[in-house]
Computed example of a mutant assay.
Amino acid sequence: MKKQKIVITGGPGTGKSSIIRQLEKHGHECLHEISRQVTLEAQKQGIAQLFLEKPVLFSEKLLEGRKIQHREADMIPTSTIFIDRGIPDVLAYMDYFKTEYSTYFTDACTEYTYDKIFFLPPWEEIYQSDNERYESFKEASLISKYLFETYKTYGYNPIEVPKTSIIERTQFILNQIE
């Protein structure tokens, strides 16, 4: 049986982590978002907001981490792996912030691919900011558009997840891959 790498993506505060936790609660293998980890490592080195201070370095570290996750998914002995954000997310954010980047980033999007993309649309009623999520809802909505378009650019047809409860959203995703 072919291994499926399933990406859960969407703008900030759309419920990705909640769905990942729900999937795990029901025994599914999941790989978590790593951007907070990259940010925390930079803070330990004295850089308060690596993404804002050195966006290309942040994106390089994020891309490397996501490539590692992609390879790690191949090693997990199960047929389906859910991943909180994929490699194209890195480019979408750089495009949103008008950051120039080399083919190193675009090449990764064609070399490391996924089987299905589930897209969580902006949802103001559940949006919350925190120490690492500093975007306004309006900014988060615009980032969502960049994410959706970036995945389409790389040949994916993102499946939009309806705005329902976490349990219903999770079941929607599971129904789409069975």
Rank of each mutant, 00 (worst) to 15 (best):
K2V: 13
Q4M: 06
K5Q: 10
I6L: 09
V7S: 08
I8P: 08
T9H: 06
T9Q: 09
G11F: 05
P12G: 10
T14A: 11
K16M: 02
S17F: 14
S17T: 15
I20T: 04
R21H: 12
Q22G: 09
Q22W: 06
K25E: 15
H26A: 05
G27E: 12
H28M: 08
E29T: 07
H32I: 11
I34A: 04
I34R: 02
R36K: 12
R36H: 09
R36T: 14
R36Q: 13
V38I: 15
Q43F: 06
K44C: 11
K44A: 15
Q45F: 06
Q45W: 03
Q45S: 11
G46W: 05
G46H: 03
A48L: 07
L50D: 07
F51E: 10
L52E: 12
L52P: 01
E53P: 00
P55I: 14
V56P: 04
L57N: 12
K61I: 14
L62E: 13
L63C: 11
L63S: 06
R66I: 05
K67L: 15
K67H: 07
K67D: 15
K67I: 15
K67P: 13
I68C: 04
Q69K: 00
E72T: 04
E72M: 07
A73P: 05
D74T: 01
D74I: 01
M75H: 10
M75F: 10
P77F: 02
T78A: 08
T78C: 06
T78N: 11
S79E: 06
T80E: 14
T80V: 15
T80L: 13
I83N: 08
D84Y: 07
D84F: 09
D84E: 13
R85H: 13
R85Y: 15
I87K: 00
I87A: 07
I87N: 02
D89P: 02
L91A: 03
A92Y: 10
Y93V: 14
Y93D: 09
S102T: 14
T103V: 08
Y104T: 09
Y104Q: 03
F105C: 04
D107R: 00
T110D: 14
T110L: 12
E111D: 09
E111F: 04
T113P: 01
T113M: 05
D115S: 10
K116A: 12
K116L: 07
I117T: 11
F118K: 00
F118V: 03
F119P: 03
F119A: 06
P121R: 03
P122S: 10
P122K: 08
P122I: 03
W123E: 03
W123K: 02
E124I: 06
E125K: 00
E125N: 03
Q128V: 14
Y134D: 14
E135D: 09
S136W: 08
F137M: 05
S141D: 02
I143W: 00
K145H: 05
L147S: 01
F148K: 01
F148S: 02
E149V: 00
E149G: 00
T150S: 02
Y151I: 12
K152M: 11
K152L: 12
K152V: 15
Y154K: 00
Y154A: 08
Y154R: 00
Y156H: 11
Y156A: 09
Y156N: 08
P158W: 04
E160S: 13
P162A: 11
K163C: 08
E168M: 03
R169H: 06
T170E: 14
F172A: 11
I173P: 04
I173L: 10
Q176C: 13
I177C: 05
E178A: 10
